[in-house]
């Protein structure tokens, strides 16, 4: 690990004025620093900031402090009762030890698990802009099939963020100049384009302070994760689904996908196919057609296209059961 200066912030305003990389749970950042994939000159420890509460909001939703651990969020009674898709997604991620350390804000900012990003002897446009992409034409079994560019085909590894995407969460931040803003999660992560090193719309020195969930809309909530092992593995494909039935028809559906793209993927065209329709295998296939219209495999990950279809069809069948 490269040497760095360490500073501990007592208040959010102090944290953003200190300059440097924020560290909270550290489970991803320190891992990458050991490999010298990340080489910050300065770390600002934000773990003492008062951002560990989950509060009810005036509009009936929840405001989750950025430092709430993945464990505490998954176990919160309000989350379990009203946002079960989020509890399920969190519990499907990482291990007990990691969930006890990893935070809500940090989870959103996880870096990709692409092997070329991790291996500093290999080209990677995300780690070293302009060096090329080893995964295109290389080992790319875990890589993206949607929203890729000729510079990067990495995926975002979070489960939590996929559920939050379906829940239409938003991200509260504090900028270095003291101003605050709220960013809808759908606009928070970027596609790789020509600048895969830029993963979110956060500005330099901007701190995530909380994530807001709107009032629960109920419905049947499912998080389905398909992976290589039964536990403690990243998603090959995951689906977060919230489906509301009415009179034997799908009143509305919200769907988000993990393992498929550089960001937690949501495509409302898929939801539009389902809206107001009676559930059937043919309908679910049309939804999958909409999801995968632009999907592109890169060799080893070609299997993700039929896997995403089967996973979506299966989740929709479960969500509309007994309708």
């Amino acid at each position: 690990m490269r040497p760095f200066e360490y500073a501990r912030a007592g208040e959010a305003s102090e944290a953003v004025s200190l300059g440097g990389r924020f560290i909270a749970g550290g489970t991803n950042l320190l891992d990458l620093m050991k490999l010298q994939v990340e080489t910050p000159d300065k770390l600002v420890d934000i773990t003492r900031l008062p951002m560990r509460d989950i509060e009810a909001t005036d509009d009936g939703g929840l405001r989750i402090g950025a430092l709430v651990t993945n464990s505490d969020l998954a176990a919160d009674k309000r989350v379990r009762d009203d946002y079960p898709v989020l509890s399920r997604a969190l519990l499907a991620g990482a291990s007990g030890q990691l969930r006890n350390k990893a935070t809500t804000g940090g989870n959103l900012l996880q870096r990709t698990r692409c092997g070329y990003f991790y291996e500093t002897s290999q080209p990677c446009n995300k780690r070293e802009p302009g060096s090329g992409c080893g995964a295109i034409g290389g080992f790319n079994r875990i890589h993206a099939i949607l929203g890729t560019s000729d510079k990067c085909i990495a995926t975002h590894p979070s489960d939590m963020a996929v559920a939050m995407q379906a829940l239409e969460a938003s991200v509260e931040t504090l900028k270095a100049d003291g101003s605050t803003r709220t960013i809808p999660l759908i606009e928070f992560h970027r596609l790789p384009g020509d600048t895969p090193e830029i993963e979110t719309v956060l500005e330099k020195g901007e701190l995530i302070t909380a994530v807001r969930l709107p009032k629960s809309l109920g419905g049947t909530q499912i998080y389905r994760k398909v992976r290589d092992r039964a536990s403690y593995a990243f998603a090959l494909v995951s689906v977060a689904a919230i489906v509301k039935m009415k009179g034997g028809e799908i009143e509305w559906a919200r769907l988000a996908f993990g393992g498929l793209a550089h960001k937690p993927w949501r495509d409302t065209a898929v939801e539009d196919v389902l809206k107001g329709q009676a559930p059937s295998r043919a309908l679910f296939d049309r939804a999958a057609d909409a999801l995968l219209a632009e999907a592109k495999g890169h060799g080893e990950n070609d299997f993700k296209i039929p896997l995403a279809r089967r996973t979506l069809v299966s989740v929709l069948a479960e969500a509309t059961q007994g309708a």
Binding site: Y6, R8, I23, G26, T27, L30, D31, L43, D45, T47, S71, S95, G96, Q97, L98, N100, K101
Partner: peptide, 24 residues
Amino acid sequence: GQCGACTMLVNGRRINSCLTLAVM
């Protein structure tokens, strides 16, 4: 943080002690 051999309890909760800084 992959194997768990370093697991410690911090304030009663288990964590991977290899993936956190002593100064924190």
